[in-house]
Design a protein around this nucleic acid. Structure first.
Lengths: 145, 145
DNA sequence: TTAATTAAAGATAAAATACTCTTAATTATT
DNA sequence: AATAATTAAGAGTATTTTATCTTTAATTAA
């Protein structure tokens, strides 16, 4: 089950990395992060730009510039991040992909899937980056098979 | 959230259709089904072939041929169907897409995601086509916006 | 003024997905 | 035996999505 795209994966990895290296102070240099996380610099830059536009991160140009959190990690939920990178309707799609499926015209899977989807949504909405980042320091951001 | 591919959607729609029209007896003609469900005949044929190879359906060639259930709808779970069409590792993938992520080398999201994933898996493993097909007769297989 | 950085937009490449076409095999009917 | 109706199988094509790269602009520090 591919739940999120590469953009989502990279964004999540980047934010977890940042959340677990907050002592860093100042701005995170994107080039360094992209090296560290083994993500294409330009691709990562674009992803972080989106998160900046969505009000999750804050950027600063010029020497010693970079990015940092605008909202605190305690206030950024997994759902925020995923909605920003995968689209606002992420948690609202019909399992069968039928156009027009909804309360008024439910598809055969509607009620069943909605309940599952809502559980997932709740889970993601109540988990913050801080929750995840806490003991992340010890863990792997890059695993090589 | 796109959980399943078009193949998965089409396969699920087709099986729900069949499960809710069992009085039909005999074999379901694929051409008719593809018309009814508005799915390309050749594409649907291929999907159903996979399900036949996986031992979920049974086919019969020649005049009045078609497909029917090999296993009973009460014995086909959503998980069976999805595994057949999306791959056996559907419920086992790392949220971050990291190679080598597992118990021995967990990624930062591992424990968290595994628990969510397992709930979903259990849900899908305990829901059969019969459960879903029961009152499907009344519902829409094609919704037009 | 220069160098270091992110911003932005567009171009390209690669991969995955979706779909189509053709031919073969099987079966019923005549 | 011949024909027509079907699914099987595999190859081929098209489309879409995802990922990446390139270039230029804007901003800032030194």
């Amino acid at each position: 089950m591919r739940v999120i795209s590469k953009s989502g994966e990279y964004g999540l990895r980047a934010l977890l990395y940042m959340a677990s290296n907050q002592e860093n102070a100042g701005y995170f240099n994107i080039r360094e992060m992209s090296d560290e996380l083994d993500i294409s610099f330009h691709f990562l830059t674009k992803i972080l730009q989106v998160l900046t536009q969505k009000g999750i991160l804050q950027s600063y140009r010029g020497p010693n510039g970079g990015i940092t959190f605008l909202k605190n990690p305690e206030d950024i939920t997994l759902a925020d991040l995923i909605r920003a990178l995968e689209g606002d309707d992420f948690f609202d799609k019909c399992l069968l992909g039928l156009p027009g499926c909804g309360e008024r015209q439910p598809c055969p899977m509607h009620a069943y899937w909605m309940s599952i989807r809502n559980n997932l949504k709740t889970e993601f909405e109540t988990t913050t980056l801080a929750d995840l980042g806490n003991d992340t320091r010890l863990k792997q951001f890059r695993l090589i098979a």
